[in-house]
């Protein structure tokens, strides 16, 4: 299975569950978790596939550090670090 180009993590301590990232995500790969965070919000989460790493969710999100967006590292850099997918090639 090919890895998605992008990836995203969401800090439950920061996310207030406003849902703006879910709405703005172009590939629609974000959703609000059915569980509540410890102060009663349904935080956003990544559905697990389809993230392109475009970063739109980062700019739509009002919290400074709630979202971290990743992109697949360039092959060379990853190979130098002994990254997983480089060895898989």
């Amino acid at each position: 299975m090919g890895q998605a180009r992008g990836n995203i993590t969401i800090d439950i301590e920061e996310c207030k569950g406003c849902g703006l990232c879910v709405e703005c995500c172009p590939p629609k790969c974000l959703e609000l978790a059915p569980e509540l965070s410890r102060y009663g919000a349904h935080p956003a989460r990544y559905s697990g596939e389809g993230c392109t790493g475009c970063g739109i969710c980062f700019y739509c999100c009002p919290e400074p550090g709630a979202i971290i967006v990743y992109r697949l590292a360039p092959l060379k850099a990853v190979a130098a670090q002994g990254g997983d997918h480089a060895t898989a090639l």
């Binding site: 990836n7 993590t9 790493g53 970063g55 990743y70 697949l72 990254g83």
Partner: peptide
Amino acid sequence: TDGYEVVHS
């Protein structure tokens, strides 16, 4: 997130 690098944080 292994193999990914941070682009926005």
